[in-house]
Each structure stands twice: as structure tokens, then as C-alpha cells.
């Protein structure tokens, strides 16, 4: 993932939005490609292991369509990312509440069989990813959203506050508690894993 300059993106994003508004719909592709991974990450994390990759992709696609439909109402006072992340978060939470998800193991983890375990760095990262997602699944969707946004590392607390509609001070407390809960959940999962291996 290439790092993106927030300021640079804001200018370019606003130009792209203007182009879309004046009828150059193809300009929207750049926005989709630019934020696809971020929006997908929000959906994937919030839907968690209860959903599968297809559900997260559907929620991602839905988020971009909603954003397109509402582009005329986007004032440009906030960053496009703030706006699209908010749509993504609400869409994913809505999906999680409304849909009966089928429980499936995280699919990337299944790609590895015993013979490939020798590829340790990649395997280890997938293991960590799996445990992280299992720990996130024990948290509330709001907590997951806050943590996901926090670890994007490009958003200020004020921007996170705009996305989540939570006051900055409350958000700080919520973030702190979510990190604490996550660490406890992850610790428990890792201990269970160790026990199962013994």
C-alpha cells in the first residue's frame, strides 16, 4: 500500500469529485481505486469472521455506490476520506446487524497447508491476522470501527470523531477501552492456542 499524502489527496480528490459532478463519471474510478483497500478493510474488520470476503466486498461496493449517489450533497468541507469512511462504517455495521452471516474460517488462512508452513514469515503474518480478527470479533462493531480507523494512522482524532459521530473526549475513552479489550481478547485467544498445541 503506497502511502498517501492527506493534503495532496484532498486537492486531487476534490478535483475528481468536481469532474464527476460535471458528468465525467469515469473520474470516479480513480477515487474507488485509491480508497478501495481502506473501505474494504473497514467492512472486513466490522463484518469480521462472521462474514466472508464476499460479504465485505459487497459492503465495500455498496459503500462506493452510496457515496456516488450522495456526491452532490458532499460539501467538501471535510476530507473525502472522512466522508467515505463514515459511509463504509455505517454500511458495514448495517450489514452486520441485518444479515445472517454464515460462519466460515478466514479464507486466506485455509490457503496454507502443512507443507507450506515452512514459509514462516508469511505464515506467521497470516496467523497473526487470523488471531487479530478472532479477537476483533469479540468486540462491539463500534469498537472495531474505532480501532480500524485509529490504525489507519492517517486520521486525526477530530476526523475520527467526524466519522464515528462520537465526541473527541468520548472517542479517546472509547479508543482506550477498545485497545484494552482487544489486548485482553487477543491474549486469551493466544493462550487458548498455546494450550491447544500442548
Amino acid at each position: 500500500m503506497a502511502s498517501k499524502s492527506a493534503v495532496g489527496n484532498k486537492i486531487i480528490d476534490s478535483e475528481l469529485i468536481d469532474q464527476v459532478r460535471t458528468g465525467q463519471v469515469s473520474a470516479y474510478r480513480t477515487l474507488v481505486e485509491r480508497y478501495n483497500d481502506y473501505v474494504y478493510t473497514i467492512a472486513y474488520r466490522v463484518l469480521g469472521n462472521l462474514g466472508n470476503r464476499e460479504d465485505a466486498e459487497e459492503a465495500t461496493q455498496d459503500s462506493f455506490i452510496k457515496a456516488f449517489k450522495g456526491l452532490n450533497s458532499f460539501q467538501g468541507q471535510a476530507k473525502f476520506t472522512t466522508w467515505i469512511y463514515r459511509i463504509a462504517m455505517n454500511t458495514a455495521i448495517s450489514y452486520k446487524r441485518k444479515r445472517k452471516m454464515k460462519v466460515e474460517p478466514i479464507e486466506d488462512y485455509k490457503q496454507f497447508n502443512e507443507g507450506e508452513v515452512s514459509n514462516m514469515p508469511q505464515y506467521q503474518q497470516l496467523e497473526r491476522r487470523k488471531f487479530l480478527q478472532l479477537a476483533l470479533d469479540t468486540l462491539l462493531p463500534d469498537d472495531v470501527s474505532v480501532l480500524t480507523l485509529f490504525y489507519f494512522k492517517e486520521l486525526t482524532l477530530v476526523e475520527m470523531s467526524e466519522i464515528t459521530s462520537i465526541g473527541v473526549n468520548t472517542l479517546k475513552v472509547k479508543l482506550f477501552r477498545a485497545r484494552k479489550r482487544l489486548s485482553v481478547a487477543l491474549d486469551r485467544i493466544l493462550k487458548q492456542e498455546v494450550t491447544s498445541l500442548l
Binding site: M1, V25, S26, Y28, R29, V32, E33, N36, D37, Y38, V39, Y40, T41, Y44, R45, R53, E57, T60, Q61, F64, I65, F68, Q125, R128, R129, F131, L132, A135, L147, Y151, F152, K153, R179, L182, S183, L186, D187, L190
Partner: peptide, 27 residues
């Protein structure tokens, strides 16, 4: 531990075809 795990998995890779699907619907 949770901090490091999250830092290692900040962003998931979305589908490369997603932009095509979105653009088809948007068009």
C-alpha cells in the same frame, strides 16, 4: 502484542475487480 498485530495488518487488500464492478453500476 495487539498493537503490533494491528500495525502489521493495518489495511486489507480489497478485490482488484471491485473498481470494475462499482464503475459498471455507477455508469
Amino acid at each position: 502484542t495487539s498493537h503490533v498485530y494491528f500495525l502489521e495488518n493495518q489495511v486489507e487488500a480489497g478485490s482488484e475487480q471491485l473498481a470494475d464492478h462499482v464503475m459498471a453500476e455507477v455508469t
